[in-house]
Design a protein around this nucleic acid. Structure first.
Lengths: 188, 188, 188, 188
DNA sequence: AATGAATGAGTATTCATTCAT
DNA sequence: CATGAATGAATACTCATTCAT
């Protein structure tokens, strides 16, 4: 591995950790510099502003998430299995990468400019699955954005309630139940 | 009734409008005073802090929302009809009271202290409907928090995508579709 | 007792209690009004400003202190006895009227305008005693302001250290010791 | 030595001058910045709060005072001479470093947190002298805190009256008189 | 006399960004 | 590339005083 020639990655590493923990607005450039072991001014050598830095980190994480999900879809064939794997992967990500997940969902909801949100790759992946299912005649013909929204909502909100401790059902049963629900949504 | 002798309502009106547009953190006390046509100090005669003001406005609006929803549930009998009316009311509120709705959902997700969130009356109303349906043997026996979360997610996320213009389906068809989905979620 | 025709005394009572506890700068007009059970504006019916109010209260308390001290001087004859009674009275006042004492000393040192300080009656009483002792040929001939300052300093500082718990000697022994010291200061 | 690269000393210089003149509470951060010719924010690069700044300045000055006093004790041997030098040094400091002195005494009495007050080095120096005198059998056996308090009171109060122009005796005679008094306090 | 809502100048503190070294 | 001291506008909040009722 090459020696770090610049301190760019120190900045993103520190910023990610802090954005995850305290949110974007809650993190100061001073925090970032301190954690990265660099001077505040150095941040501006590599990123034009804190907002831009947050955006870039968001995109890196979406990418990470996307690859994580893709791993779950590798060994499945039918659209139904794919949808199941999508749900499973989503839940697993929220559990195993808690900080990344909470950063992504918080950033997605409020902290980033609109144009970043549209890069939300998992939604695109979901739509692809839906279109495939429709093409194979196994899923209902319905606007994929609408179906996708309903599925995403079901997943995300359940995770939110799960995380805030308001659901008294075992994790695996919840996942199973959400999968069934998502299948019902798409099936004829 | 005499003319309002205090400027309390000027404060809440201005604050509501601004919180809706720019979020709570994004709104300054100076903004509020300017818009209300009063001095900054006057805010503090009526509310002990900006956070408290936001909380009070949140509760007022939740209340408003709740009454709005109740209106939709008046003339229905069966749990299935009630669930349909709930979905319908939710969508109508999001359409007719756009700013209130976006304030409520933003505040709910991120900006308010936890204890305020739990006052989210619509979720309680939904759970009531679910329990009634279960009691009458018409809905599946499943943890109401889990079912509630899935239903809320379906509704909220669809509205979110609808509002951001990403669903190319007519409003009425969307509503109808979400209703059907919610019924599927609860039915045996 | 006559009905209170105005709320002037409510104001002074409340203000005294608060100034004692939190100092003048630390007490707000709102505090005073709240405690007095009146409106903030009412204070300004009776006193032209908070500073003036503090000054008036200071004078009332000096007067109270002065009468307290006079009580101790009633039954003594010789200048030596008078000086002893003065010291004794001072210590007793600081112990029995703790809040008044701390208000008077704090106000005297820093919070009041110069011209108020000169009304410090106990110093005048002390000088009278010193002049009497000189006249009777029992005390040294020395500027009474200087002797007075030294005596007052001995008393006040000892009380200060006593109050802050830094003297590990019994109260009565301290008093006795200070009396002896004061006598040494004036004796030939 | 290189020119000062930071504005830290500008801040302390300005703050000291202002605290002396108007007290700590009476001095605003704006005043300090204005006088130092810097931005308000700059204060906070060097000091975490105004209170901390005041504390640090207090300690610097106590230190300065302490070294000043030590200079007076250099060439004396007996405890009596040391006590005399202590009094002399105290008076000289109050005369030659008027602003420092008034800041120290004001801060000591009321404006600083308790734990800062205990760093009052001169009192410790005085107690040392007293203990030495007792050890050599030349001073009375009496609690050094009590004796110290009486001596300090005698000195401080006399200076206070001297400064406010209420003593019509020449400076040197006052010093001499206070020295004699302090000796009387400690002698058997 | 009494009220109390309104004022507005003032407070300490924060923080993203700049720039001379 | 890197630094970090300096900036200055912005922040939420305070409070003695005024004045219409």
């Amino acid at each position: 591995m090459a020696r770090p020639i610049s301190k760019k990655s120190e900045v993103t590493d520190a910023a990610l950790a802090l954005f995850m923990k305290k949110g974007i607005k809650g993190t100061t450039t001073r925090d970032i510099a301190l954690r990265a072991g660099i001077a505040e001014g150095t941040i501006y050598r590599h990123f034009e502003s804190k907002a831009k830095l947050a955006e870039i980190i968001f995109e890196q994480n979406i990418d990470f998430f996307w690859k994580f999900l893709k791993g779950y879809l590798k060994n499945v064939k039918t659209p139904e299995e794919m949808l199941g794997a999508f749900v499973h992967g989503y839940f697993e990500f929220s559990r195993r990468e808690q900080k990344r997940y909470s950063y992504l969902s918080a950033a997605h909801q409020t902290e980033l400019k609109k144009h970043s949100r549209d890069k939300m790759k998992p939604m695109q992946m979901l739509k692809k699955i839906l279109r495939l299912g429709q093409k194979q005649g196994r899923f209902r013909e319905l606007d994929t954005s609408l179906t996708g929204a309903m599925i995403m909502g079901t997943i995300i909100q359940t995770i939110f309630y799960l995380k805030t401790g308001r659901i008294a059902v075992k994790y695996h049963e919840v996942t199973e139940e959400v999968m069934q629900t998502c299948l019902k949504i798409v099936q004829k």
